[in-house]
Design a protein around this nucleic acid. Structure first.
Lengths: 73, 73
DNA sequence: TTGTGACTTATAGTCCGTC
DNA sequence: CGACGGACTATAAGTCACA
């Protein structure tokens, strides 16, 4: 499975845990809403700096966004 | 500490464990020698796709490159 | 064997929208 | 609320000559 898909699924999972909309999360980490949307859908290839920003907003480590094994897909 | 520095230090650590030179590692993951050098020094901001390539060559998960806590610096 | 500056091309990331 | 597109700018990817 593609890293980007995995990151996207994990991002969505943790975002929902926090109860954020994509836009709220985007605001929290200083990114654009359309970009967060793209990462979540696995069509973007984010850099480690971006990963760190997102992870911070979600209160998890950046590595988990990559390594966590999503249930399916 | 900067994510990029952390990734660089971890990269170096695991590279040495494998007994690779930068050039050998670069070959293993299909990247340029000088690029690997840049990542290792923390001056590059690699994407998750790059991280995955490097991690695969080092037989570790991509997340560890980010999350592993280097001893110092 | 590695660090570094400079460089070109590809794509990361923003911002405007519509559905 | 989120998927998706177009146009744009910033920066990553990728390579080189040389220290």
């Amino acid at each position: 499975m593609d890293v980007r898909k995995r990151v996207g699924l994990n991002l969505k999972k943790y975002r929902l845990v926090k109860g954020f909309s994509q836009e709220e999360l985007a605001f929290e980490c200083g990114l654009h809403r359309t970009y967060v949307s793209g990462v979540e859908r696995g069509v973007r290839n984010p850099t480690v700096l971006i990963l760190e920003k997102i992870a911070k907003a979600l209160d998890i480590s950046a590595g988990r966004l990559i390594d966590d094994k999503p249930a399916r897909k």
